[in-house]
Write a protein that binds this DNA or RNA. Structure first.
Ligand code: MN
Ligand code: MN
Ligand code: ZN
Ligand code: ZN
Lengths: 171, 171
DNA sequence: ATGAATAGCGAAAATGATTTTCAATAACCC
DNA sequence: GGGTTATTGAAAATCATTTTCGCTATTCAT
């Protein structure tokens, strides 16, 4: 079965804080280390995609299309197949989070430490996305999965509504 | 922009308890009333789809494919375009909830009164879905959308993990 | 370093859920 | 009943994502 959170269920990183994340900025070839540890190879394409996420403002979420376009804009040509493959690998390694915000496409952002997990408020009209934190969410997620004996991978709380400016537009 | 929760943002029912839901079973042609009130027409196809949801055990979620198959099984031929159109209309009327449980397809279930809103725990390996209730979720959803001036349509809390039996299978 | 083994790349084709098109039909309203 | 038009089914179109395949680049042992 395909999955929202990974493509190789058996060995997915759990919802812990990935030790790589803290130092991804400092260590220049940490990506190589993380990849090789799991048998993946380091490539310039993967580095460029990760760099792009690190250059993306907090609270912004990227999809494959945007990644492709932004890399084009900075003169890097890369194929969609490579982008999709890199995204899967980086989700699998716990470097990225995959999000189902709305409409038929997936969005990605740098993964954040477990206790700083955040959630999303989406305007279904204009697509604006606001982030918020609430530890009650993660507590409930932990509690429920523990109760049922599930090993927790990820919780997503998504609130859909209409933002103030769209409300006035729509009367 | 397309939307998880509806296809015609401006007039979507809000997250209140839809008055139709309580009595959908009793009133035989309540569906007609609800449809006509919004300018839609009553059709036997829409009735059959709603009937199917009412005959579906609680906690089970249907996608377009399953709806098509189940209707075929009971001798009803219906096209996918009609199924998709009916699902959109019924979400729009607040009769159904649209869910993003996992993998690239949408699931539907009868909409439930606001305060009985439930959430989902999904095994990413076998696809099993468990439901749970927690009023903290809806409170946080209300609170966040109020704070930001959003009009709330819907909240979904989805917890992804691996169920006990898949854990033992996977070692 | 060098070379063998193979993971990863790009381009193009394939997939698969959903949407759209369009002519025929059936609901609605007078 | 009859005109208007929303809805239907079948087929074609969309569109994000995945797969295929021949070629290249990374890894790792020599
Ligand atoms: Mn985010
Ligand atoms: Mn449910
Ligand atoms: Zn908006
Ligand atoms: Zn399972």
């Amino acid at each position: 079965m395909a999955s929202i959170t990974n493509f190789f269920d058996g060995e997915k990183k759990t919802m812990e804080h990935h030790p790589a994340l803290a130092s991804l900025n400092q260590e220049p070839d940490l990506l190589k280390t993380v990849l090789n540890k799991e048998g993946f190879r380091f490539t310039s394409q993967r580095q460029k995609i990760l760099d792009l996420f690190q250059a993306t403002p907090l609270g912004h979420h990227l999809n494959a299309e945007e990644i492709h376009q932004q890399l084009l804009d900075q003169g890097e040509k890369i194929s969609f197949s490579t982008i999709y493959r890199a995204l899967h690998v980086m989700v699998r390694l716990g470097l990225l989070q995959e999000l189902e915000l709305a409409e038929g496409r997936k969005y990605y952002e740098l993964n954040t430490p477990f206790m700083e997990q955040h959630h999303h408020l989406v305007c279904v009209h204009c697509g604006e996305v606001l982030e918020f934190e609430d530890t009650k969410m993660t507590q409930v997620g932990h509690g429920e999965s523990a109760t049922r004996g599930f090993s927790l991978l990820n919780c997503q709380f998504t609130v859909y509504g209409i933002c103030p400016s769209c409300q006035s537009l729509l009367g």
